[in-house]
Design a protein around this nucleic acid. Structure first.
Lengths: 393, 393
DNA sequence: CGGAGTTAGTCCAGTATTGCAGGAAGTTAG
DNA sequence: CTAACTTCCTGCAATACTGGACTAACTCCG
């Protein structure tokens, strides 16, 4: 057939348009493509032929008739390559392989302490990922074309460097692409974990929704934004970083940022576990705590609800300001119904009815794989764009 | 020459591209147009010729040489029509005429109580506007092609109706276009006043900045958002409505929305004047109060500073969330340096350094005419777009 | 002042795109 | 089992767009 893109390849300027439409899932036949791109059927046919010729697209047999001739379904060729996805958490990491069609082929979860030396952490992560690739290859899959990494801290959109991350000691100024490329010659992308989760959870639907917010409450608190149907990362890359918003009227708990009363220091998973420990319980993780709350443990329930209320209080301002149509709660704490109820109650109490009556508040659907899916999606979005994957710096 | 667009006309699909580039001010010759549109010089030349033929564009003589042949400057024909702009405030209104080139030709300011019957208010506003048109016509200007109105309350983007406006008693559910079209047969646009001011202040620059926030603090508090270089109004039209965000730890002043401690009830011009009156002073307007503060009146100064601090506290969350590159303060209170200092101080104190060190915090440049300019701009943007001006219902 | 270098704009032949008129392959109704 | 209608896809001639060579107009420097 041929080789599908090397390191920084690009697709012919026009074909991107058709590819993007196909990838969006909103069109899967020549006719539908013509419809949503606005191009003429003739042009679409010509471009699709070229893409098939190049091996990017395949025809997958006839679809259902809608009262006339059956459409000949088209698909992105998934087996053209793999994207390695690494979602680094504070004390564990998730790994996945996404094929070129955007499907998550395999996943793996392993403990990994991010506080260790960045180089060692990335080295270890890369090894795990490459092991997965080896196994997948046995199953007939093709080459790894790039790696997309998520980290629990702010990432500069200009330099791809991690900046002032409160949960990643030793990582300030680190460039993940730079470090990883010392070990492997592939395009590498880094992003904040909440942004990846937003991409995975919110950009997935067939009919994409324009303005949405995803709040990830795990060890820390982060938030990813979708604006106008695309991931929004702000002017410098740290849009959505609400960790250090001061919570009105809360206790003056000291925060890693040097101030007191930050949302992260009060309502994050870490903060809650510490509170449980201070109170004398033997809780080691948020999961344990949520389990306790499900058994009506008074302290755990109270703390979780209160964390929901505090988070909801901050989100109220955001909902008023941003007027999204959908708010999604993700991360470990989203598994706690008490927490979710706290968020919902506070939002409905503190926002004007106007702002909430068209708003849907949901819980993330993909749980532990949302970040991986998002990592794959973002990489592929860039790969299948007019200028290909550029690993900055 | 010919007639430039009737009521709901559209320009030929392609020409919009060139027109938009010209209107943006970032290009004023064929060569520059080719540069920023990405079209070939040949195509641009052809389209410009067509536009000149149609009377939308004129050649305005040679420009400065940049080391080679001089460019032949191009301009949108301003005299092709006028847009009537009405910026309704709580107790006064501004009126302006903007020509098709986007220049504000005339302006007028008059007292007008918005609490009166909507129909009467609009009738009176229209009369003033038409008077201005008559005068302008004597000066050689052409026909009125539409009206763009700003109101101090939320406007639904779907229906163009004013919804739950706390400062506009009797206006809930009112459709300004509908009412005005009973008196005049022209396309009418309505928008929130802060959005218009944002359009006027932030979309004006030669080199447009992507993500900005304008906060208008006058009688009330509102905020307009520019995201990705375009005005952002959210999913329903009320993005930026921060009037009813609860201010942390402030007095429980009752608000028109039925709750207590809203930003609008504490830091708006109205709230401050009332505070001054409660304290026994004889202040009647924010302007008086600002004048007092400039003479170091302790209470006025203190209240203004505190209003700045409270506003800054809310904006801190927004800056963290939205990560804009620029924040602009407008409205009457932006004339008070104490207020501005309060906002600045609080932002720098409550945001992470990361979020503020690339942020510029400015004061609006157009003062009373920002809203009018924005009204004109938004109307023209729609008129010169692929689908023309649609006055929704 | 006159060539070298630059920038702006135009002419022209080749290519991409479109609109439209079919053809292909269905469904539905009688 | 036609006949009428839908929907999907493909020729073909007309049209729009492009890239590159060319002209025009100007600056700069020796």
């Amino acid at each position: 057939m041929n080789d599908v893109s090397g390191t920084v390849p690009l697709h012919s300027p026009q074909h991107v348009e058709v590819l993007a439409a196909l990838r969006s899932g909103r069109a899967n036949s020549r006719a539908a493509l013509a419809n949503i791109t606005g191009l003429s059927p003739t042009t679409v046919a010509a471009r699709v032929d070229a893409l098939i010729e190049q091996g990017h697209v395949v025809e997958t047999g006839p679809g259902e008739s809608r009262g006339g001739r059956r459409p000949r379904h088209l698909m992105i060729r998934g087996d053209a390559g793999l994207v390695g996805c690494i979602d680094l958490g504070v004390d564990r990491a998730s790994f996945g392989l996404v094929d070129f069609a955007g499907e998550l082929i395999t996943e793996r979860h392993a403990p990994l302490d991010i506080a260790a030396d960045p180089r060692a952490v990335l080295s270890r992560a890369l090894k795990i990922l490459l092991d997965m690739v080896d196994e997948a290859k046995l199953a007939g899959h093709t080459r790894l074309r790039g790696i997309s990494v998520g980290v629990p801290g702010p990432v500069s959109s200009a330099t791809s460097r991690v900046i002032s991350p409160s949960r990643m000691p030793g990582w300030n100024g680190v460039s993940v692409p730079e470090l990883m490329r010392r070990e492997i010659d592939l395009p590498i992308l880094v992003n904040n974990d909440a942004n990846l989760m937003a991409a995975g959870e919110l950009l997935d639907g067939r009919e994409p929704i324009g303005n949405q917010v995803l709040v990830k409450v795990g060890s820390g608190i982060g938030c990813g934004i979708v604006c106008g149907g695309a991931l929004y990362t702000g002017s410098n890359g740290w849009a959505g970083d609400i960790s250090h918003v001061v919570v009105p009227g809360a206790a003056a708990v000291p925060c890693s940022c040097g101030r007191t009363g930050c949302l992260d220091a009060l309502a994050s998973g870490n903060a809650l576990v510490r509170e449980m420990q201070v109170a004398g319980t033997n809780v080691q993780s948020v999961e344990e705590m949520i389990a306790l709350a499900q058994d009506s443990h008074p302290l755990a329930t109270g703390l979780l609800r209160n964390a929901g209320v505090m988070t909801g209080g901050v989100l109220a301002t955001i909902v008023n300001f941003f007027n999204p149509e959908r708010l999604v709660l993700g991360g470990v704490l989203a598994d706690s119904s008490v927490f979710v109820a706290g968020v919902r109650a506070t939002l409905y109490a503190e926002c004007l009815p106007m702002a909430t009556d068209q708003l849907s508040i949901d819980v993330a659907q993909f749980a532990a794989t949302g970040g991986l899916r998002g990592a794959g999606r973002i990489f592929l979005d860039q790969l299948f764009s007019a200028d290909g994957v550029r690993t900055s710096a």
